[in-house]
Amino acid sequence: MLEIDIASKVYQTAAGPPLLAIRGLRFAIAEGEFACLVGPSGCGKTTCLRILLGLERDYDGRIALPGGDPRIGVAFQEPRLLPWRTVEENVRLAQPVALRERPLDDLFARLGLAGFKHFYPGELSLGLARRAALARAFAVEPRLLLLDEPFVSLDEATASDLRALLVDVWQARPTTALMVTHNLREAVQLADRIFVLSARPGRVLGEYPVMIERGRRSPDAVRAISVDLATRFPGLA
């Protein structure tokens, strides 16, 4: 179970008044569930992930992670690969020592990285770098997966390829997952449950379970659900 109950999170800005990013953000995700946070930009989605990652400690509220102190696989908004280490080294370095001997070939093959193990991040396209970041997130065999718009600024064809790869890898080992996105259709395609956030200060406006099995979410079905979702939460569009 992943539980989040953040009463408030305030950012001190360098010049000007403090910024209230989150007020009363409360939701929970069941074990093994894939949830998405959607909402307008600046509504505190990324802040919420940073709190879960332990990168923001100055907030008012409490969180409970599955298993207490779980191993977390994360994909940040930008790939954040160490530029001076190869793709394989980047993945290996993130792994706990016990996992470093296990072959990565299957994971790399699934993500279409097979020929790129020895490339440096600077030699990869953005799409490939994002795949490598996903490979790293999965290679640690996480108990919790946190994804911060991992497909942003990719062209639609590449993004949809990567979404399919994500589903494929995730289904091989279902993990409690929380993905932040502002792309409704992406959320509908991937999630078991969607939480809709308000504009800043962020709080949950409502949740929307996606009932259809992932395998049967055709483009038409995704479009229909997205329209339904958008009519229920007019702020989303």
Partner: peptide, 21 residues
Amino acid sequence: RAYSELAQVYRFSFASRMRDV
């Protein structure tokens, strides 16, 4: 800081933080 955060989230050891980050 982005790389320090990465090292924190993936629990790099102190030696690895120095050598790799």
